[in-house]
């Protein structure tokens, strides 16, 4: 029994070690950008805040208005919500101001897709559009917890709500059209296209007018990269875009998961150990 106990404690310690400090031999890499990935380039310096993209998004996606004033005069969302997939917010400080567009970033390695327990959120392998299927969703809202940009929104007003988020107008893409927001944008602040091309374009703009921009393309590396990328004159944190590490949080989470549960080795080992010990102790109890 002494031996048993010591052995048990030793294995527990080893197991605990593996549980809490995964060896990164099993670490998965961030997923790579698909060559056919589609996305948007939002240039805050070109945005005039006309909100045509907000209206267009609502029209092409059949979204209801959202009120934030007591008289219900305007479709005035305060941010993304179950009835707003695309919104223009304003940052103002002293004499400087900048608009910023909020919508799904279509991450290269999306945390929401990694988090969803039932594959209701999927990343289209070719275009990289993160798609949501309400028929599959169980409404656990783990995607909302996981998303570093707080994009997926839940239909709180409904008795049987669903998650709502931008899907890059994939119903229009299927018809060969552009997403509603980029079609409506009168200044070219929202540009639709292949992500590789958009990145080139963004860097070209940075190079052409270095003084006009904050020297970074947001979304090139942030959180493992996003397919919706940003240019701005102001630091991106001020525009509500979090300062993310270059590794997707999905990578970290899955590494820990798969290290712990690789081939179900550790659980099976622990189970065998517990079963062996429990059986012995039960036998002993009977003998006594």
């Amino acid at each position: 029994m002494r031996m048993n106990r010591r052995g048990f404690l030793q294995t527990l310690a080893i197991g605990g070690g593996a549980l809490s400090a995964p060896s990164f031999a099993n670490a998965r890499q961030d997923k790579a950008l698909s060559p056919g990935a589609l996305g948007l380039l939002y240039d805050a310096t070109k945005c005039v805040g006309c909100q045509a993209c907000v209206i267009a998004c609502k029209e092409v996606n059949g979204m209801p208005p959202e009120f934030s004033d007591p008289d219900h005069l305007w479709d005035a969302p305060l941010g993304l919500s179950a009835s707003t997939r695309n919104v223009i917010a304003l940052y103002k400080e002293g004499g400087r101001h900048s608009f910023v567009r909020q919508s799904c970033m279509h991450c290269v390695d999306p945390a929401c897709v990694s988090a969803c327990p039932v594959k209701a959120l999927t990343k289209e392998p070719k275009t990289g559009v993160v798609h949501y299927d309400a028929g599959t969703c169980i409404g656990c809202r783990y995607c909302m917890v996981a998303c570093p940009f707080n994009v997926p929104k839940f239909e709180w007003g409904s008795a049987y709500g669903k998650i709502v988020k931008c899907q890059l107008c994939d119903h229009l893409l299927a018809k060969g059209e552009k997403p509603g927001c980029s079609s409506a944008c009168p200044t070219g602040a929202i540009q639709f296209g292949g992500v590789q091309k958009l990145l080139q374009e963004a860097h070209a703009r940075l190079k052409a007018a270095p003084g006009a921009y904050y020297p970074k393309v947001y979304g090139e590396k942030e959180g493992g990269g996003t397919q919706v990328i940003f240019l701005s004159a102001l630091p991106f944190e001020k525009l509500g875009l979090p300062d993310l590490p270059d590794v997707s949080s999905a990578t970290l989470s899955e590494t820990i998961m798969h290290t712990t549960y690789k081939g179900f080795g550790m659980p099976i080992f622990l189970f065998a150990l517990f079963a062996f010990i429990a059986r012995r102790n039960l036998q002993k109890g009977k003998e006594e």
């Binding site: 909100q51 209206i55 004033d69 005069l73 305060l78 917010a89």
Partner: peptide, 18 residues
Amino acid sequence: DIQRFTPPAFYPHVFEPR
């Protein structure tokens, strides 16, 4: 009864408390 709602000429703040 407003038939077609559109955004107003003002904007939510980036960090709009809700």
